[in-house]
Nucleic acid binder design. Structure first.
Lengths: 341, 341
DNA sequence: ATGAAGTTTGACACCGGTGTCATAATGTCA
DNA sequence: TGACATTATGACACCGGTGTCAAACTTCAT
């Protein structure tokens, strides 16, 4: 029993002595086909090492059992390294897809490219997951365009008012609150925030708001001088902290918008002769692996990436099935470590 | 100018007043088509937001401009976490694919599944990259089967004698040598190795051999009692080190088969009241991000994941083009940090 | 004017499945 | 035994492109 090249359903039909239609039905376990015939077809398919040609199948059915993920790089990310938080997300999304029987197409995107509908328009994926920090998505028109094409997609990250997408995100506001409450409970009332608290980084801005609002409620003011701009890299956190110190801002509690920033901040503090946590308490955000390894280990607001990946996939699938769904907000959790005594 | 649903080449043909064949040619910039016609077709395609249907195209041409990566989990990997080394590899492979104009299908595999040809047989990918630690691939028959189906694939990891696959790997033997040489140069001659030095973990075994052979050449013996079994997790490294200490094996230099193992080992050493590097020097393998963050920071043998990803993709593409290629061995590099004084 | 070579285009089969419809075979009941 | 429902199967169009072949139209030399 041989075939030239890869086996097709016609080859099976030939050996089974039935029509190709019947083979197709039998392989998909259609109730229309006789039990005996079905077994025979499966038997032969196995012997021929037959696999359905997904291209043909997808072409006909107009769906692909595949999701695509567009990963937007940190604007300043160096060539080789990717934010470990996103790698974790990538991992959990991969797992979630596998669980749902979907394949995953991965693609890096530079924001400038025409990423609009590369995948879904070309029928390679049934839906798209958009993933990235910062303002990569503040291309209202692009999202609008995706919507008008009836493309199914979900975004990870802060919900931006008026943006028409479906999002899954960590409760960034609540995360900021957790950090502030923790500082307050430790009587650390002279606080600074490091991170880009502007609408260019909606996630960071929301974390900042939760942080600031909570402090305000306790009559603790966080002056303008106590907010240093930084993107999510270690270097950026390092320099932002140095400039705070250079400006003689004094503080005993530091909340960083991400763990990478926090790690850079700790480096700068140490260099300036300040001890963590004795002189300054530090809280990060994300709970990347390194947070547990650095010295002192970093207290941080954990984003549950496993759950996040699952929700992104589940919501996207629901969207594809045209079910009614809403934005999802995942609860953050404060992980206590050495950097806050 | 409208179309019901997604635009097809027929829609363009209609508006351009030419045949669908000509549209297809024009869009692929065939020299057979008149410059003027070409421009007109492109213009209309743009207006209609047309994208080639990859399923139809792939079906006809029998290729997909897509590679697949099968990621084998650490046998004991817990549900959510993935070895950061592999996440890095995943990232660099993703980047390398993008650079070559290929898409990437990602899939987790449990070793038990029939992963044989899921992707390539079903025409979803032109080639496969197999990635994982340990003995996940010692299914000679499976690889043989892939070969007999003329499936194009490359493996990451130690070359196993007699295994018929094309591999890209770090020079694990050389990496072991680097570690040994470094210890020797520091006059640390009472060494232990932690890692599964058996044929179940070809990479680890090769690292061990390079380490041991070099020590032997300097008349430094590494007794059986100085080798502790461990898989690539922090926990495993921790327990392996504890059992060494419990057995009263004394040593002033520890070489771990991976960074995760090394991190676990350092934890065990600290708990036992031993100082790193004063009492014991430690070298790891991989150079994951955490190696730079732990305290003391970890001297380690770096595997260049960026280059590795590129080579995997390049070699696979060469294989697909039926070019003659051979196994690739990437040079390791010793990264000096605090854990070796 | 005629033929040869070059350029540009359209018609059509084809890739390998899926879904619809018609048909054949079998069973059921009056 | 004929009318009709039920079950199992085959024929065939179709998804949206690509590649081949023939034909139509130029151009240019003879």
């Amino acid at each position: 029993m041989k075939t030239k090249g890869k086996a097709t359903s016609f080859d099976i039909a030939h050996y089974a002595g039935v029509s190709q239609s019947t083979v197709s039905r039998a392989l998909r376990n259609s109730p229309l086909v006789n039990e005996e015939t079905r077994k025979k077809v499966w038997e032969i398919a196995k012997q021929l090492n037959y696999k359905v040609d997904k291209n043909a199948s997808n072409l006909r059915t107009q769906q692909s059992a595949t999701l695509a993920i567009l990963l937007f790089e940190d604007p300043t990310g160096d060539e080789s390294q990717i934010n470990p938080f996103f790698l974790n997300m990538l991992g959990s999304i991969t797992r979630a897809c596998a669980k749902e029987g979907y394949d995953l197409l991965v693609s890096f995107q530079s924001a400038s490219q025409d990423w609009r509908a590369e995948y879904e328009d070309s029928h390679r994926a049934d839906g798209i997951i958009l993933l990235g920090y910062g303002d990569y998505m503040d291309y209202q028109s692009r999202l609008q365009n995706l919507l008008s094409q009836n493309t199914k997609f979900v975004c990870w990250g802060a919900k931006v008012e008026g943006r028409p997408d479906l999002t899954v995100s960590c409760d960034n506001y609540g995360g900021g609150q957790l950090a502030a409450q923790h500082f307050i409970s430790l009587n650390k009332t002279s606080c600074v925030f490091i991170g880009d608290a502007s609408e260019h980084s909606p996630e960071f801005l929301t974390r900042f708001k939760g942080f600031k609002d909570t402090l305000d409620q306790h009559q603790i003011s966080l002056g303008e001088r106590c907010v240093a701009n930084a993107i999510s890299t270690e270097d950026s956190g390092y320099h932002a902290t140095r400039s705070l110190l250079a400006n003689n801002v004094s503080f005993n509690a530091l909340f960083a918008a991400s763990d990478l920033i926090a790690i850079g901040a700790i480096k700068a503090l140490k260099e300036a002769g300040l001890r963590v946590p004795e002189d300054v308490n530090v809280i990060g955000f994300d709970n990347i692996a390194a947070a547990n390894y650095i010295s002192p280990s970093l207290t941080t607001v954990q984003q549950n990436t496993t759950l996040a990946g699952q929700m992104l996939v589940q919501n996207l699938l629901a969207l594809i099935r045209e079910e009614q769904i809403t934005d999802t907000l995942l609860p953050p959790k404060l992980i206590l470590r050495q950097s806050t005594s």
